[in-house]
Structures are given as structure tokens and as C-alpha cells.
Nucleic acid binder design. Structure first.
Lengths: 262, 262
DNA sequence: CGGGCGTTATTTGTATACAATAACGACGCG
DNA sequence: CGCGTCGTTATTGTATACAAATAACGCCCG
């Protein structure tokens, strides 16, 4: 049980030499994204949250230029933590830099969105497959419970969309966690974050919501049966349909040849 | 053909109001990783390159703690660009932060490596499939040419490993480019970078190298035939074998249950 | 009227000083 | 002797000033 730790040795090139033979701080093998980090205290985290909220608020249009100075004033912190936050948002593809390092609000085309959904599907199907082989009874129970909450949100009138989205997010997170593939989780985090921008304009039809709930129920059934193939298949159709309901609100498809000219 | 640009409007909350109706700088839709960026001029880029070289040099051991101050002295720039560089290296999983933000050299377990190869295989098979449908005649020619260089590197005695690695890298890059999926490229970049750390200790058997070349030849054949399934299959076995030859030099596999206790 | 060129102003990049946080070590108490 | 507590030191985080890069503007010339 005693996790093997990796005793460290400070080479201390220019500073004072010092060797420690005791267990230091903590020695993560591979630390993985601070997924559940509660550390929202630091200025850069606040800046991140505020800028993100600003982008999702619709006050700012896709393609618009932003400056670090502006963001610094919006967030109330100096440019240093703003730059940190901006880097994270670039990583999530909500912000974008031109080749001369000017900052813009990302503008997602329909093809960009499809690409994103395709990748997400590929990775999340894999996650579902692995999860089916690894989920504990407790985790399956958690999924059921989350899904009850999701259905409750739908059954309200009007449906509580943000509660739905929250439950949906949690549902998928549990699966990804259960896949026990930290880097998979890391890659997915990047993909899942991005399209949230677009949800501002989204309207959710009750039927879409109910179909989602049915998909989740079937996923739970697949997990309970420990049927990896089933889980993968359901996850695949779940996400692919999600793309199409999403795409209906955007534009028609572009051919690859046209897209290449952009 | 005139790409539609998104004229921007500076809201300029606190500053001077100003509206421009002319095309500004440049308006990237989604800019995508500065893959080919020649911009290695800035201090943060130099810091990145130097730190990376330092990590690969073997002067520093996995699990060892580093401080921004040390890296600042090694690179000769101040902590600000060092922090920037460190963020990039964290992203590539060469560095790692503890939950209290201390910085460590990443320590990859065999399972970490397998996980990484699995993800890479999934994504790169997809890339090969797409590339088979999209590669131009010129690109196929480029692959052939690169592969000639790769074989030349092998046929030297002793084989020129770094030239081999360079050609190999280029070969895979051309395929990923041809897949026309910028976010796929971005995800793969993250995965491909990491294991390079481990190659310091790697010895490449001539037979492994030759098999790689044969795989590449078969890939080219699949591309020339525009056979997406073939390309995907060859890429899959190519990468899976790469993992096993890689793994032979590391340790035996760990069971998932054991791994969970770490 | 339009297009190139130098100047100005805006924006990003870097250095440095300082603040906040976390680890270490010593001390004191049970 | 173990273990919590507190002061010290090490390390990361933030603010600010300044430097470098680059886009905007006005000017001149064709």
C-alpha cells in the first residue's frame, strides 16, 4: 500500500548544495490535470473564470480582438495572471492568437465543430469501453443517481437546462474517471470545454433532452452488464446525435475542398 | 475566394473609444498550433529549447525537483519567460507540478507509456485513414522521398539514428498534415513529444529500424492506392509494434489493480 | 486617387521587486 | 520518544516598469 516514492536529490547547481533522504513534499508520478482542484483562490484562476464568463456572456463577438490590458481591467488583476489565464483559454481554443501574437476571440466554423465532435467521439467511445471493464458498483450507482437528477431537470417545466447540463457533465466525467486513463481525460478536457461557447445560442428541444436521458440509461445498462462493446456503441451514437442536433442550429456542411481554401 | 473576414470592433471599455471598419491585422478563424513557426527568437522560446535539452540530456533524473530560479539561471533569462516555457513543458508532460505547485521532472511508468501509445495509435490511425482520402500526389511523393532518406540512414554503418528519427518524425508529420484536422494535429503533438525523454536510454536494433522502414513503405502503398482501411491497419500495427519494442527496454506490465494503488 | 515610407501609438514580451504560500527544522510539551 | 507548533527559509505568485515588436496613421510622391 505504501506507495513507492521517488526520493529526490537537489543538484543545486548554483545555490546551496542539499541532499534530502526523507520523503519530500509529495512525489507525483504523473500528476495529471488538477481536475478537481478547489484552488480557485489565486489571481490567475479568478482571471480565468472571469474571462471565461465574459466570453460566454455574449458581450463579445467571435473574431473580436482583445488586449491583455482590457482583460486586466475586466478581471481586476495585473497582466501577469491574465497572461496565465489567457494561455489556458488558448489551450481550450476559446481564445486564439494571430501569428503576430494578437489575441482574438475564437470563431468556430461548422467544420471546426464537427471535427471536434469526431475527435471527442473517438476518445469518449474508448473511455466508455474501458469504463465498462472498470466501473465499481458504487460508480454505477453514482451514474444512476446523476441520471435521476438529469431526468428531474428535464421533467420540470420549463426544463432546468443548466441543471441538465451540469448533470450531463458529471455523468460523462464519472465515465472518464473510471476509464483510468489520465491522459485520455486530459485530452478530452480540452475538447469538451470548447463548444460551451456556442451553447449560448442553443435552444434545447424537450425531445433532444429526453433522448439524451434515454442514452444515459442505456449506457448505465451496458455498464451494469459490463458489456464494453455495447457501451462503446451507445456512446458513439449518443455523441454523434449530439453533433447533429448541435449542427442543425449552425450552418450546412462545407465540403472539404471549400474548407481547404479558408 | 476572398475569405470572409470578421471586421472587428474595439469596445474599449475604459480606454479611448475607437471603431475600425478596415480589415485589421489578420483574422484567423482558428489558428492552430504554430507548428511550423520559425519564431524561436523570443526568450521564452529559447528557455523552452534549453530546458527541454536539459531534460533530455540526462543530467537530471526523473522525479527530481526543479525550481524556476534554477531554470532561470540555466537558461539565462528571467523567471517570467521561464514560467512560460515551463507551462509548455508541463503541457507536453515532460514536467509536472505537485499539488502545491512545486515542479518536478516527470517520471513515466510503463503503464503511462502504454497509455500514451494507445491514445497515439487511436488518433494516428484516424489520421492515416483521413490522409489516405486526401493526400495529394505531391505529398505521396514527399513521403516516398522522406522514406528514402530514412532507409539511407539505416543503411549506414553504424546507422544514423538521429537522421532516422528526424525522417520518421517528418513522415508522420506529413500524414497528420494531410489529414486536415488541425485539432487532431494539436492533440497528437502533445502525445508525440513526451516519450522522447525516454529515448536517451533506447538502443535501436537494426531489425527494428528495417521493420519501421517496411511499414512506411506499406503505408505509402496504401496511400497510393487510396485505401483508407489499409492505411489505418498498417498504421495500427506500426505503432503497436513500436510500443512493444519500446516496452522491452522498460519493465514488465503492471496489472490495473496494482497500478491503481500507486 | 492610390500606394509606399517613416513616425507614432498600441500591444505584447521581459526583468525585477515584492507578496503569499509552503516546506524545513527546532523547540517544547505530553 | 513522538508529535504538534512556530519561526525561518525556500519557492511560487503577482504587480509594475520598461523594452521590443508591430499595427495604425499621416505624409509624400507618382
Amino acid at each position: 500500500m505504501a506507495r513507492q516514492v521517488c526520493f529526490y536529490h537537489r543538484t543545486d547547481l548554483p545555490g546551496k548544495a542539499r541532499v534530502s533522504t526523507r520523503k519530500p513534499y509529495d512525489t507525483p508520478r504523473l500528476p495529471l490535470p488538477d481536475h478537481d482542484r478547489s484552488g480557485m483562490s489565486r489571481a490567475s484562476d479568478q482571471a480565468y473564470a472571469k474571462i471565461r464568463a465574459y466570453l460566454l456572456s455574449g458581450e463579445v463577438r467571435a473574431g473580436e480582438q482583445l488586449t491583455e490590458e482590457q482583460l486586466s481591467q475586466i478581471t481586476g488583476v495585473s497582466r501577469t495572471p491574465v497572461r496565465e489565464a489567457v494561455r489556458r483559454l488558448e489551450d481550450e481554443l476559446l481564445l486564439v492568437r494571430s501569428d503576430t501574437k494578437r489575441l482574438f476571440v475564437a470563431d468556430w466554423s461548422r467544420d471546426d465543430i464537427e471535427e471536434m465532435f469526431t475527435l471527442r467521439q473517438m476518445l469518449e467511445c474508448h473511455a466508455a469501453e474501458r469504463a465498462a471493464q472498470r466501473l465499481t458498483r458504487e460508480q454505477v450507482g453514482a451514474l444512476e443517481s446523476v441520471n435521476r437528477s438529469l431526468k428531474a431537470a428535464i421533467d420540470q417545466s420549463p426544463p432546468d437546462v443548466s441543471r441538465f447540463l451540469e448533470a450531463n457533465r458529471t455523468f460523462h466525467e464519472v465515465i472518464i474517471d473510471a476509464a483510468h486513463s489520465p491522459r485520455l481525460a486530459q485530452l478530452l478536457a480540452k475538447l469538451v470545454e470548447a463548444p460551451v461557447v456556442l451553447r449560448t445560442a442553443r435552444t434545447y428541444s424537450p425531445e433532444d433532452l429526453r433522448q439524451s436521458a434515454r442514452d444515459h440509461d442505456e449506457l448505465v445498462a451496458a455498464f451494469a452488464a459490463r458489456d464494453a462493446d455495447w457501451a462503446r456503441a451507445v456512446m458513439g451514437s449518443h455523441l454523434r446525435r449530439a453533433f447533429h442536433t448541435f449542427a442543425k442550429t449552425v450552418g450546412p456542411a462545407t465540403s472539404d475542398a471549400e474548407a481547404r481554401e479558408r
